[in-house]
């Protein structure tokens, strides 16, 4: 029983593989007969075939669309205009990445420079200097500082 179900499943699979070629009439005579015989007995495979057929019919519906009646008029206008804009767009296409690359390099260089300055400051200047400056304010009250200004 199990082997029957298994072989039946395999049979379905092998039929599914050939359905698109069956629709296009590309199977050998023997294979076509096998597929047709199976389709007569199997409703599931018939349903799949119908689904595939409907999908492939979409191509027929989309084929050869009506082209706009102003196609040549638009093309002719483009033909008169295009060279300037194309030359400009080519220039822009080259200049834009070059500009952004330059900006990136400047940014990286600037970042490195700032980083190295900050690290050298740390080494040369002890942190106590800034503390001392703040302490000077404590020694001289702001009121007396303003009075001296007057």
């Amino acid at each position: 029983m199990v082997s029957y179900i298994k072989s039946n499943k395999m049979n379905h699979k092998s039929i599914h593989k050939d359905l698109i070629f069956y629709l296009d009439n590309e199977l050998s005579v023997e294979r076509k007969t096998v597929v047709e015989k199976h389709l007569e007995e199997c409703a599931d495979c018939r349903s799949i075939l119908a689904f595939l057929q409907e999908e492939m019919q979409v191509i027929g519906k989309e084929k050869n669309p009506e082209v706009s009646p102003f196609f040549y008029t638009r093309l002719s206008a483009k033909l008169d205009k295009k060279p300037d804009s194309q030359a400009q767009s080519q220039w822009v296409r080259l200049a834009q990445p070059a500009f952004f690359s330059l900006l990136l390099v400047i940014g990286i260089y600037g970042g490195l420079k700032l980083g190295s300055n900050a690290s050298s400051l740390k080494v040369n200047q002890p942190a106590t200097n800034s503390v001392q400056m703040l302490n000077d304010f404590a020694d001289e009250p702001i009121e007396s500082f303003l009075l001296d200004e007057l």
Binding site: E62, K63, N64, P65, V67, F71, Y72, L75, S76
Partner: peptide
């Protein structure tokens, strides 16, 4: 331009169809 127009009108449907596909 006249030759070009003839070419365009003869092949426009074919080219649009190919691109559309």
């Amino acid at each position: 331009r006249k030759s070009f127009q003839i070419l365009v009108e003869s092949y426009q449907r074919m080219v649009v169809n190919t691109c559309l596909a």
